[in-house]
């Protein structure tokens, strides 16, 4: 095993860095979950504009 490389063999692609060993697919899913979480927090709440300002609904 080498450090910090994507291992490719019949068992799949793996990222190996020190004690961490994770499949590329799992890593992509974890990053996607973090991105979705960040978007859920940062994007404006749907329908906010239709009520004409933030008034008492926020």
């Amino acid at each position: 095993m080498r450090n910090g490389v994507v291992l490719m063999d019949s068992g799949g692609r793996y990222i190996d860095s020190g004690v961490i060993q994770i499949s590329l697919t799992n890593a992509i899913i974890i990053v996607a979950m973090i991105v979705v979480f960040a978007l859920a927090i940062l994007l404006p709440f749907p329908g906010r504009g239709r009520r004409g300002g933030r008034g008492g609904d926020s």
């Binding site: 068992g11 799949g12 060993q21 994770i22 499949s23 590329l24 697919t25 799992n26 899913i29 974890i30």
Partner: peptide, 15 residues
């Protein structure tokens, strides 16, 4: 090998 998290091949496992 963190096998508890893994699925065979390139399929997603149990992160």
């Amino acid at each position: 090998q963190w096998g508890m998290m893994n699925e065979t091949g390139n399929y997603p496992g149990q992160p």
